[in-house]
């Protein structure tokens, strides 16, 4: 029987919300990959975006505002056999959780971060999110935004993520492809997803995006993949330049992929040789009678005096 990756829960996002497209793209990607449903998990923060795991028929943790990344890393490192999808809003990932967003780049644990960019704090009624440009005035805020915006793509690249891409919630097949690429990528990925929030953001609407968005894949000369260290500098530079394009034409697609950065699980298995074979979640912790298998007088020999 084919597993239905959508749970039977009623979705409570506003009509026309970009989150629907993202949910569809995730469900589609999971179905296409034919993944064992027990071996993929969804972890989210708090926000409209944070509800996504409940709508997926896989194990899901709807965690704290800004903390989805630490949860996902805990799951991934304890059981590296799992595919871990992380969902968070722009406030969640780049506001309250920005420290974790940067730190995960340094780890590159192998989680797939889907960053829902609607430029607002949806669930708290439309305050400006860290991705809203300076001076933008959407209907839910009383005066034009007084902060400049963070561009998540170069931030992710500079932090060390080895797969960085941008998608659009209404380009479902394209987004689904990006998610599949990311799931198969060994290190950590960030996919920024542009999404309309019709309830609060009346500037970056569906139409606004539709008119501007174009796919990088349509340009056959675009090659963002670093295959060896020599290419690193040039491709980083290309990805950076590409990520800055905003205005009448907004590129979506893979901005940067670097397969020369070892993942955290790989780094761990250099220290604990059997880590991938017997990760923490697969180990026995007691003998057949239920007692400790570790005798401190043997293991901590450096503390022993006799």
């Amino acid at each position: 029987m084919v597993h239905n990756f959508r749970s039977d829960l009623t979705v409570d996002w506003c009509p026309g919300c970009g989150d629907f497209g993202i949910l569809t793209a995730i469900t589609k990607a999971l179905g296409n990959m034919n993944l064992d449903p027990e071996k993929v998990v969804a972890i989210s923060g708090i926000g409209c975006s944070g509800k996504t795991p409940h709508y997926l028929n896989i194990a899901g943790a709807h965690t704290l505002h800004g903390r989805s990344i630490p949860y996902s890393v805990g799951v991934k490192l304890a059981n590296p056999n799992l595919k871990v999808l992380v969902m968070g809003g722009d406030g969640d990932m780049l506001g309250i959780g920005a420290g974790h967003f940067v730190a995960e780049g340094r780890r590159n644990s192998g989680v797939v971060i889907i960053l829902y960019n609607n430029s607002v704090y949806g669930l708290t009624k439309g305050q400006a999110a860290p991705t809203m440009p300076l001076g933008e005035k959407v209907k839910s805020i009383p005066r034009p935004n007084i902060f400049t915006k963070i561009n998540p793509i170069p931030l992710a690249m500079a932090s060390g993520y080895s797969f960085v891409a941008r998608g659009f919630s209404s380009e479902i097949n394209h987004l689904s492809d990006l998610i599949q690429r990311a799931v198969n990528h060994e290190g950590s990925s960030v996919i920024e997803v542009l999404q309309p929030c019709p309830t609060y953001n009346d500037v970056n609407t569906l139409d606004w995006y539709r008119k501007r968005v174009y796919k990088l894949e349509d340009d056959k000369s675009w090659d963002p993949i670093v295959k060896n260290k020599e290419e690193e500098e040039e491709k980083f530079d290309n990805g950076y330049q590409m990520s800055l394009k905003w205005g009448d034409h907004i590129p979506i697609g893979i901005m940067y992929e670097n397969n020369t950065i070892p993942s955290f699980t790989k780094r761990l298995s250099d220290i604990v040789p059997n880590y991938l074979k017997y990760p923490p979640s697969e180990q026995d912790i007691s003998d057949s009678e239920g007692y400790s298998i570790l005798d401190p007088f043997e293991t901590f020999i450096e503390r022993r005096i006799d």
């Binding site: 972890i43 194990a59 943790a61 965690t63 704290l64 903390r67 630490p70 949860y71 996902s72 890393v73 805990g74 799951v75 490192l77 304890a78 059981n79 799992l82 923490p280 979640s281």
Partner: peptide
């Protein structure tokens, strides 16, 4: 939170 996450496994 990472410790919490690991405990889920």
């Amino acid at each position: 939170n990472m410790a919490n996450g690991a405990a889920l496994t």
